[in-house]
Protein backbone atom coordinates (compact mmCIF):
# COMPACT_ATOMS: atom_id res chain seq x y z
CA UNK A 1 0.00 0.00 0.00
CA UNK A 2 2.80 2.39 0.80
CA UNK A 3 4.06 2.05 -2.72
CA UNK A 4 0.76 3.25 -4.16
CA UNK A 5 1.20 6.49 -5.92
CA UNK A 6 -0.84 9.62 -5.74
CA UNK A 7 -2.93 10.42 -8.83
CA UNK A 8 -1.21 11.54 -11.98
CA UNK A 9 2.33 11.15 -10.76
CA UNK A 10 2.97 8.63 -13.50
CA UNK A 11 3.13 11.34 -16.09
CA UNK A 12 5.12 13.83 -14.05
CA UNK A 13 7.50 11.07 -12.99
CA UNK A 14 8.07 10.20 -16.62
CA UNK A 15 9.10 13.66 -17.62
CA UNK A 16 11.11 14.19 -14.47
CA UNK A 17 13.18 11.05 -14.48
CA UNK A 18 13.99 11.02 -18.14
CA UNK A 19 16.08 14.14 -18.17
CA UNK A 20 18.89 13.36 -15.69
CA UNK A 21 19.66 9.69 -16.46
CA UNK A 22 20.85 8.76 -19.92
CA UNK A 23 18.26 6.48 -21.50
CA UNK A 24 19.32 2.92 -22.17
CA UNK A 25 20.43 2.56 -25.79
CA UNK A 26 18.40 -0.25 -27.33
CA UNK A 27 19.70 -0.36 -30.89
CA UNK A 28 17.59 -1.18 -33.95
CA UNK A 29 15.41 -4.28 -33.65
CA UNK A 30 16.86 -5.87 -36.78
CA UNK A 31 20.37 -5.98 -35.25
CA UNK A 32 19.50 -7.97 -32.15
CA UNK A 33 21.10 -11.40 -32.15
CA UNK A 34 19.18 -14.35 -30.91
CA UNK A 35 19.68 -18.01 -30.25
CA UNK A 36 17.11 -20.66 -29.52
CA UNK A 37 19.20 -22.09 -26.68
CA UNK A 38 19.54 -18.73 -24.96
CA UNK A 39 15.76 -18.19 -25.22
CA UNK A 40 15.17 -21.64 -23.83
CA UNK A 41 17.42 -20.95 -20.88
CA UNK A 42 15.51 -17.72 -20.11
CA UNK A 43 12.25 -19.68 -19.96
CA UNK A 44 13.88 -22.47 -17.95
CA UNK A 45 15.24 -19.96 -15.43
CA UNK A 46 11.74 -18.57 -15.05
CA UNK A 47 10.43 -22.08 -14.40
CA UNK A 48 13.08 -22.68 -11.74
CA UNK A 49 12.25 -19.34 -10.09
CA UNK A 50 8.59 -20.38 -10.03
CA UNK A 51 9.53 -23.59 -8.22
CA UNK A 52 11.59 -21.70 -5.67
CA UNK A 53 8.88 -19.11 -5.09
CA UNK A 54 6.11 -21.69 -4.79
CA UNK A 55 7.80 -24.50 -2.90
CA UNK A 56 4.48 -26.31 -2.43
CA UNK A 57 4.63 -27.32 -6.11
CA UNK A 58 7.82 -29.17 -5.25
CA UNK A 59 5.97 -31.36 -2.79
CA UNK A 60 5.81 -34.18 -5.37
CA UNK A 61 9.60 -34.08 -5.52
CA UNK A 62 10.38 -33.67 -1.84
CA UNK A 63 7.79 -34.46 0.80
CA UNK A 64 5.92 -37.11 -1.17
CA UNK A 65 8.85 -39.54 -1.69
CA UNK A 66 9.91 -39.15 1.92
CA UNK A 67 6.37 -39.89 2.99
CA UNK A 68 6.38 -43.06 0.88
CA UNK A 69 9.71 -44.16 2.27
CA UNK A 70 8.46 -43.75 5.82
CA UNK A 71 5.08 -45.31 5.07
CA UNK A 72 6.45 -48.41 3.40
CA UNK A 73 9.63 -48.79 5.42
CA UNK A 74 7.89 -48.60 8.77
CA UNK A 75 4.15 -49.24 8.23
CA UNK A 76 3.71 -51.83 5.44
CA UNK A 77 7.31 -53.02 5.20
CA UNK A 78 7.11 -55.53 7.98
CA UNK A 79 4.50 -57.54 6.08
CA UNK A 80 6.41 -57.68 2.77
CA UNK A 81 9.23 -60.14 2.20
CA UNK A 82 11.85 -59.67 -0.48
CA UNK A 83 12.35 -62.65 -2.79
CA UNK A 84 15.87 -63.95 -2.33
CA UNK A 85 16.04 -62.35 1.09
CA UNK A 86 17.54 -59.06 2.22
CA UNK A 87 16.34 -55.81 3.74
CA UNK A 88 12.95 -54.54 2.53
CA UNK A 89 14.08 -50.98 3.15
CA UNK A 90 16.94 -51.42 0.70
CA UNK A 91 14.56 -53.06 -1.78
CA UNK A 92 12.11 -50.20 -1.36
CA UNK A 93 14.39 -47.29 -2.28
CA UNK A 94 14.86 -48.35 -5.93
CA UNK A 95 11.07 -48.48 -6.32
CA UNK A 96 10.47 -45.11 -4.75
CA UNK A 97 13.20 -43.57 -6.92
CA UNK A 98 11.29 -44.88 -9.94
CA UNK A 99 7.90 -43.75 -8.67
CA UNK A 100 9.16 -40.27 -7.84
CA UNK A 101 10.67 -39.82 -11.28
CA UNK A 102 7.52 -41.00 -13.06
CA UNK A 103 5.22 -38.87 -10.98
CA UNK A 104 7.45 -35.79 -10.72
CA UNK A 105 8.53 -35.96 -14.36
CA UNK A 106 5.01 -35.95 -15.81
CA UNK A 107 3.23 -33.90 -13.19
CA UNK A 108 5.54 -30.88 -12.86
CA UNK A 109 5.78 -30.00 -16.51
CA UNK A 110 2.10 -30.73 -17.12
CA UNK A 111 1.09 -28.34 -14.34
CA UNK A 112 3.48 -25.64 -15.55
CA UNK A 113 2.23 -25.79 -19.14
CA UNK A 114 -1.44 -25.94 -18.17
CA UNK A 115 -0.93 -22.93 -15.90
CA UNK A 116 0.81 -20.92 -18.62
CA UNK A 117 -1.96 -21.73 -21.07
CA UNK A 118 -4.51 -20.39 -18.61
CA UNK A 119 -2.88 -17.21 -17.33
CA UNK A 120 -1.99 -15.48 -20.58
CA UNK A 121 1.72 -16.24 -20.35
CA UNK A 122 1.65 -18.18 -23.63
CA UNK A 123 0.25 -15.17 -25.46
CA UNK A 124 2.88 -12.99 -23.89
CA UNK A 125 5.64 -15.32 -25.05
CA UNK A 126 4.15 -15.68 -28.51
CA UNK A 127 4.06 -11.92 -28.99
CA UNK A 128 7.84 -11.82 -28.40
CA UNK A 129 10.47 -12.45 -31.09
CA UNK A 130 11.77 -15.53 -29.29
CA UNK A 131 12.50 -18.92 -30.83
CA UNK A 132 9.34 -20.94 -31.32
CA UNK A 133 10.77 -23.97 -29.55
CA UNK A 134 11.97 -22.04 -26.50
CA UNK A 135 8.80 -22.10 -24.41
CA UNK A 136 8.39 -25.85 -24.56
CA UNK A 137 12.13 -26.46 -24.37
CA UNK A 138 12.45 -24.17 -21.38
CA UNK A 139 9.69 -25.93 -19.50
CA UNK A 140 11.21 -29.32 -20.30
CA UNK A 141 14.68 -28.21 -19.21
CA UNK A 142 13.45 -26.68 -15.95
CA UNK A 143 11.60 -29.86 -15.09
CA UNK A 144 14.53 -32.07 -16.01
CA UNK A 145 16.67 -30.03 -13.62
CA UNK A 146 13.90 -30.25 -11.06
CA UNK A 147 14.14 -34.05 -11.27
CA UNK A 148 17.64 -33.83 -9.80
CA UNK A 149 16.16 -32.53 -6.56
CA UNK A 150 14.22 -35.65 -5.53
CA UNK A 151 17.16 -37.80 -6.65
CA UNK A 152 19.37 -36.04 -4.13
CA UNK A 153 16.61 -35.98 -1.54
CA UNK A 154 15.83 -39.66 -1.95
CA UNK A 155 19.48 -40.65 -1.77
CA UNK A 156 19.92 -38.93 1.59
CA UNK A 157 16.61 -40.22 2.86
CA UNK A 158 17.56 -43.75 1.76
CA UNK A 159 20.91 -43.59 3.48
CA UNK A 160 19.16 -42.57 6.68
CA UNK A 161 16.78 -45.56 6.66
CA UNK A 162 19.57 -48.01 5.87
CA UNK A 163 19.81 -48.12 2.06
CA UNK A 164 23.33 -48.47 0.66
CA UNK A 165 25.05 -48.53 -2.73
CA UNK A 166 26.81 -51.90 -2.75
CA UNK A 167 28.38 -51.59 -6.19
CA UNK A 168 30.98 -49.12 -7.50
CA UNK A 169 30.79 -45.51 -8.55
CA UNK A 170 30.28 -46.41 -12.24
CA UNK A 171 27.24 -48.53 -11.54
CA UNK A 172 25.87 -45.82 -9.28
CA UNK A 173 26.49 -43.19 -11.98
CA UNK A 174 24.73 -45.43 -14.49
CA UNK A 175 21.76 -45.70 -12.12
CA UNK A 176 21.47 -41.92 -11.80
CA UNK A 177 21.95 -41.54 -15.55
CA UNK A 178 19.12 -43.99 -16.15
CA UNK A 179 16.89 -41.96 -13.82
CA UNK A 180 17.62 -38.80 -15.81
CA UNK A 181 16.91 -40.57 -19.10
CA UNK A 182 13.61 -41.87 -17.74
CA UNK A 183 12.72 -38.44 -16.36
CA UNK A 184 13.31 -37.00 -19.83
CA UNK A 185 10.93 -39.57 -21.31
CA UNK A 186 8.30 -38.83 -18.65
CA UNK A 187 8.50 -35.09 -19.37
CA UNK A 188 7.04 -35.68 -22.85
CA UNK A 189 4.09 -37.50 -21.33
CA UNK A 190 3.74 -34.47 -19.07
CA UNK A 191 3.89 -32.06 -22.02
CA UNK A 192 1.18 -34.09 -23.72
CA UNK A 193 -1.01 -33.93 -20.60
CA UNK A 194 -0.36 -30.23 -20.02
CA UNK A 195 -1.19 -29.42 -23.65
CA UNK A 196 -4.29 -31.61 -23.83
CA UNK A 197 -6.07 -30.89 -20.57
CA UNK A 198 -7.81 -27.58 -20.11
CA UNK A 199 -6.72 -26.59 -16.62
CA UNK A 200 -4.10 -27.35 -13.96
CA UNK A 201 -6.93 -28.89 -11.90
CA UNK A 202 -7.64 -31.38 -14.67
CA UNK A 203 -3.94 -32.24 -14.79
CA UNK A 204 -4.03 -32.93 -11.09
CA UNK A 205 -7.03 -35.18 -11.50
CA UNK A 206 -5.54 -37.24 -14.33
CA UNK A 207 -2.24 -37.51 -12.55
CA UNK A 208 -3.89 -39.08 -9.53
CA UNK A 209 -6.28 -41.29 -11.44
CA UNK A 210 -3.92 -42.55 -14.17
CA UNK A 211 -0.28 -41.99 -13.35
CA UNK A 212 -0.29 -42.71 -9.68
CA UNK A 213 -1.78 -46.23 -10.02
CA UNK A 214 0.65 -46.92 -12.87
CA UNK A 215 3.48 -46.59 -10.39
CA UNK A 216 1.80 -49.07 -8.05
CA UNK A 217 1.06 -51.86 -10.52
CA UNK A 218 4.77 -52.54 -10.76
CA UNK A 219 7.58 -53.88 -8.64
CA UNK A 220 7.82 -50.50 -6.94
CA UNK A 221 6.74 -51.61 -3.48
CA UNK A 222 6.12 -55.31 -3.79
CA UNK A 223 7.72 -58.03 -5.93
CA UNK A 224 5.62 -58.64 -9.09
CA UNK A 225 5.48 -62.36 -8.26
CA UNK A 226 2.85 -61.62 -5.62
CA UNK A 227 0.39 -60.10 -8.13
CA UNK A 228 -2.53 -62.00 -9.70
CA UNK A 229 -2.79 -62.92 -13.45
CA UNK A 230 -3.30 -59.92 -15.74
CA UNK A 231 -1.92 -57.46 -13.23
CA UNK A 232 1.19 -59.55 -12.97
CA UNK A 233 1.80 -59.51 -16.73
CA UNK A 234 1.15 -55.77 -16.83
CA UNK A 235 3.53 -55.18 -13.93
CA UNK A 236 6.22 -57.33 -15.49
CA UNK A 237 6.27 -55.25 -18.67
CA UNK A 238 5.58 -51.91 -16.94
CA UNK A 239 8.74 -49.80 -17.43
CA UNK A 240 8.33 -48.61 -13.85
CA UNK A 241 9.10 -52.21 -12.80
CA UNK A 242 12.09 -52.48 -15.05
CA UNK A 243 13.38 -49.10 -13.85
CA UNK A 244 12.99 -50.24 -10.23
CA UNK A 245 14.74 -53.50 -11.08
CA UNK A 246 17.48 -51.73 -13.00
CA UNK A 247 18.17 -49.42 -10.07
CA UNK A 248 18.27 -52.36 -7.65
CA UNK A 249 20.68 -54.12 -9.98
CA UNK A 250 22.94 -51.10 -10.47
CA UNK A 251 22.94 -50.21 -6.75
CA UNK A 252 23.37 -53.87 -5.76
CA UNK A 253 20.20 -53.88 -3.63
CA UNK A 254 18.15 -56.94 -2.67
CA UNK A 255 15.37 -58.13 -4.98
CA UNK A 256 17.39 -57.25 -8.10
CA UNK A 257 17.66 -60.81 -9.33
CA UNK A 258 14.63 -61.79 -11.38
CA UNK A 259 13.10 -65.15 -10.50
CA UNK A 260 13.58 -68.09 -12.83
CA UNK A 261 11.06 -67.98 -15.69
CA UNK A 262 10.60 -64.17 -15.42
CA UNK A 263 9.99 -62.37 -18.70
CA UNK A 264 12.80 -60.78 -20.69
CA UNK A 265 11.97 -57.30 -19.36
CA UNK A 266 12.82 -58.33 -15.82
CA UNK A 267 15.84 -60.41 -16.78
CA UNK A 268 17.40 -57.42 -18.58
CA UNK A 269 15.97 -54.50 -16.63
CA UNK A 270 18.65 -51.95 -17.60
CA UNK A 271 18.45 -52.65 -21.32
CA UNK A 272 14.65 -52.84 -21.25
CA UNK A 273 14.44 -49.50 -19.41
CA UNK A 274 16.71 -47.83 -21.96
CA UNK A 275 14.64 -49.24 -24.83
CA UNK A 276 11.35 -48.28 -23.14
CA UNK A 277 12.62 -44.73 -22.55
CA UNK A 278 13.72 -44.43 -26.17
CA UNK A 279 10.36 -45.69 -27.42
CA UNK A 280 8.42 -43.34 -25.14
CA UNK A 281 10.53 -40.39 -26.31
CA UNK A 282 10.23 -41.36 -29.97
CA UNK A 283 6.47 -41.76 -29.78
CA UNK A 284 5.40 -39.20 -27.18
CA UNK A 285 7.69 -36.29 -28.04
CA UNK A 286 6.42 -35.64 -31.59
CA UNK A 287 2.79 -36.04 -30.50
CA UNK A 288 3.38 -33.83 -27.47
CA UNK A 289 5.07 -31.12 -29.52
CA UNK A 290 2.26 -31.12 -32.06
CA UNK A 291 -0.37 -31.05 -29.34
CA UNK A 292 1.45 -28.21 -27.61
CA UNK A 293 1.61 -26.15 -30.80
CA UNK A 294 -2.07 -26.79 -31.43
CA UNK A 295 -2.99 -25.80 -27.90
CA UNK A 296 -1.44 -22.37 -28.23
CA UNK A 297 -2.60 -21.37 -31.71
CA UNK A 298 -6.01 -20.54 -33.05
Amino acid sequence: MTTEMIPNTAASQTTKTQAPTTPVELGPPGDRRSSALADMWVVARRGLLHMRREPEVLADATIQPVMFVLLFAYVFGGAISVPGGGSYREFLIGGIFAQTIVFGGTFGVAMAIAADRNNGAMDRFRSLPMARSAVLGGHALANLLKALLPMAFMSVCGLIVGWRIHTDIWHAAAAYGLLILFAFAMIWIGVLLGSSLATPQAVQGVAFVAIFPLTFVASTFVPTSTLPGVLKTFAEWNPVSSLSGALRTLFGNPGAKAPVGAPWSLLHPVLYTVIASAVIIAVAAPIAIRQFQRSITD
Binding site: L26, G27, P29, R32, R33, S34, A38, D39, V42, R46, L49, H50, R53, E54, A121, R124, F125, L128, P129, M130, A134
Partner: peptide, 19 residues
Protein backbone atom coordinates in the same frame (compact mmCIF):
# COMPACT_ATOMS: atom_id res chain seq x y z
CA UNK B 1 4.14 -13.07 -14.08
CA UNK B 2 3.00 -13.02 -10.46
CA UNK B 3 5.83 -15.21 -9.24
CA UNK B 4 8.50 -12.92 -10.64
CA UNK B 5 9.36 -9.51 -9.27
CA UNK B 6 8.61 -6.43 -11.35
CA UNK B 7 12.24 -6.17 -12.37
CA UNK B 8 12.49 -9.88 -13.22
CA UNK B 9 9.40 -9.58 -15.39
CA UNK B 10 10.86 -6.73 -17.39
CA UNK B 11 14.34 -8.26 -17.58
CA UNK B 12 12.95 -11.54 -18.88
CA UNK B 13 11.05 -9.78 -21.63
CA UNK B 14 14.12 -7.74 -22.54
CA UNK B 15 16.16 -10.93 -22.76
CA UNK B 16 13.56 -12.54 -24.99
CA UNK B 17 13.81 -9.44 -27.18
CA UNK B 18 17.54 -10.24 -27.27
CA UNK B 19 18.72 -7.02 -25.73
Amino acid sequence: DGLLSGLENLTMIGELHHL
